[in-house]
Amino acid sequence: MNAPVTGTEDLIYTIEGGIAKIVFNRPQARNAMTFAMYDQMASICEGINGDPSVKALIITGAGDKAFASGTDISQFRAFKTAQDALDYEGRIDRVLGTLEGCRVPVIAAIAGACTGGGAGIAACCDIRIGTASARMGFPIARTLGNCLSMSNISRVVALVGPARTKDMIFKARLVEAEEALAIGLLSEIVPDVETLQVRALETAKLVASHAPITLEVTKEAVRRIRRTLSRDEGEELLLRAYMSEDFREGMDAFLNKRAPNWKGK
């Protein structure tokens, strides 16, 4: 039977037969992530690192509309200073770094929109399985006018290369499932949500049956091979985006459901 562990209404966590599962449970908000949800996910990964009974982790979103549609925009309302921006990116880097460093294989089961912070979470996972309706990307050049953290840029470039990274972000487009499979954003496509959950569990059980140290050291070796830009290397870039008039305009336009008026300053 499922054993709930530190679950909340917005994020449900269960373990069954050595397979842990996180469900982002805000379907009414397209599973947009609150700061509390980010922190809870990191805490779960830290717990898994100290629990040898857990062999694999599945991350998914409730419903069929979204895996996670990014950070809940209302979380940005309090941004006033440069330190607010740096603290936010530092928090997200810590969370995603903890997810990426989770010792067990992490499988993202993706249905619908996987955008912004949600796509960042997916990029940290080891295996990404999507439905035919899955769409992935970072449409921030069209919506908010902010930027990805240096760590997230590094992860996306490692997955799809620099040219495709710029193409996705410059055009603010979402990559459909078939293209995502072709360029390495997805490992596999299944037809629907029901099949997705079955396939994610099958995959988790398969990797859980293999030598755990082999999986752990391979995962860590791949992480070490990939060069990750540090926050310090991109601090001035983060501040240029988050302290801009365009970011305030993008946030106001998004919350008021209107088109932003970009000024480039």
Rank of each mutant, 00 (worst) to 15 (best):
G47M: 02
S53I: 10
P4S: 11
A66Q: 06
R26P: 03
Q197G: 07
N261C: 09
A119T: 13
V106D: 00
S151C: 09
A200N: 10
T203A: 11
R91Y: 04
S149N: 06
E176T: 02
L196W: 06
E178Q: 15
A221M: 05
L57V: 12
T165F: 13
L186G: 03
S74A: 11
C102K: 11
F76Y: 15
C114N: 13
C102L: 00
L201V: 09
P162V: 01
A108T: 14
I213E: 15
S43H: 07
E176W: 06
A85Q: 06
A123R: 04
A177M: 06
K257Y: 04
G112W: 09
R164M: 04
I19R: 13
D39S: 13
V106Y: 03
I129M: 02
A62D: 04
V106C: 04
A158W: 09
T214R: 09
Q75C: 12
T34Q: 14
V190P: 00
V217I: 14
D246F: 01
M41N: 08
R231E: 12
M1W: 05
T203F: 03
F76G: 11
G97W: 07
I183M: 03
R199F: 01
A109C: 09
V222T: 08
E249V: 04
A141G: 02
G70W: 01
T34G: 06
A68Y: 02
A259Y: 07
R227H: 08
N49E: 08
T71W: 02
S149T: 07
D51E: 15
R77S: 05
C124Y: 01
D252S: 10
G130F: 00
A158F: 08
D84G: 00
L185H: 00
A211V: 05
A204Q: 02
T8M: 10
D51S: 12
A204E: 04
I153G: 03
A119V: 09
I189Y: 01
V106K: 14
A211P: 14
I92L: 12
L215A: 05
I189T: 14
M243F: 04
A29I: 01
K21R: 15
V193W: 00
C114E: 05
A68E: 00
E236R: 13
K205E: 11
T34V: 14
F247S: 08
A113N: 12
F138R: 02
T34E: 13
A200I: 14
M37S: 11
I107F: 01
M41P: 05
T60N: 01
I12M: 07
F138E: 13
A85Y: 07
A259P: 00
I22L: 14
F24K: 08
E202L: 03
T6Q: 12
A32G: 02
D167P: 04
L148W: 11
E46I: 15
V193F: 07
K55D: 03
C45S: 06
N256V: 00
G145T: 10
S244Q: 05
M168R: 00
I183H: 05
T195D: 10
